[in-house]
Computed example of a mutant assay.
Amino acid sequence: MWKLGIILFIIVGPTLAGIGALIPLAMNGVNQINPMFLAGAAIVGALIAIPVSLFLGKKINDLMSSKGGVTA
């Protein structure tokens, strides 16, 4: 599960960090952006991606093991 979660974090982490970075850009616009707010929102998005990727890894591992497949 941990190995699969780490592999999923490679995809989920930048995706949620990018979504988090878009929030201040959509609220303020490009010219009026606070750089610390932009960086903070991206970091929060990346931190949210950790439990999301572990949850997805557990679900995929459970699906693979319930059907008799090879477990990660």
Rank of each mutant, 00 (worst) to 15 (best):
A49H: 02
P51W: 07
L16Y: 03
G20M: 02
G45T: 05
A39T: 04
P35M: 10
I50C: 04
S66V: 08
I7Y: 13
L4N: 03
G29T: 10
I10W: 09
I10Y: 07
V70A: 11
K67R: 10
L47N: 09
G5F: 01
K58Y: 13
V70N: 09
L16V: 03
G13F: 01
G69Y: 09
L56F: 14
G69P: 04
A72P: 08
A21M: 15
T71F: 04
G68Q: 09
V70Q: 14
K59F: 04
V30W: 14
T15A: 14
G18P: 00
A72R: 03
A21D: 01
A49Y: 01
N31C: 09
F9I: 01
F37P: 00
A17G: 14
K58N: 12
P35L: 13
L25S: 03
I43P: 00
I19T: 05
L16I: 04
F9A: 02
V44Y: 07
I23D: 06
A17C: 14
W2Q: 13
L25V: 14
L56G: 01
K59W: 08
T71L: 11
I60H: 01
N31Q: 14
L8D: 00
P14E: 11
V12Y: 00
I43A: 15
I19R: 05
A46C: 13
G18M: 12
I11R: 10
I48D: 00
I60G: 00
G5L: 01
I7K: 15
Q32W: 12
A39Y: 11
L4E: 03
L47S: 12
G69E: 12
G57V: 00
G18A: 15
V30T: 09
T15Q: 08
G68P: 03
G68R: 06
K58W: 07
A17R: 04
N61H: 10
T15K: 08
G69W: 09
P24C: 07
S65F: 05
G57T: 01
I33P: 03
I33C: 04
I48P: 02
G18C: 11
I7V: 11
L25E: 05
T71K: 11
I6C: 12
K67P: 00
I11N: 06
T71Q: 09
A49K: 02
G68Y: 05
G20H: 01
G57N: 06
M1S: 02
G29E: 10
L16S: 01
K67W: 07
K59H: 06
S66E: 10
I6D: 02
F37Q: 15
I33N: 05
Q32V: 07
S53Y: 06
A39R: 14
V70H: 08
K59T: 04
N34G: 03
S53V: 09
L38K: 07
Q32R: 14
V52F: 10
G69V: 05
M36W: 14
G69T: 06
F37A: 15
I6H: 04
S66N: 12
K3W: 05
L16P: 00
L22F: 13
L25R: 11
V44D: 01
V44E: 03
A42E: 01
N31H: 12
I23L: 13
L47I: 12
F55C: 06
G29Y: 09
V44T: 11
D62Y: 04
I48R: 01
G5A: 15
A41M: 13
S65Y: 05
A26P: 02
P14H: 11
V12F: 04
L25H: 06
F55A: 13
A17N: 07
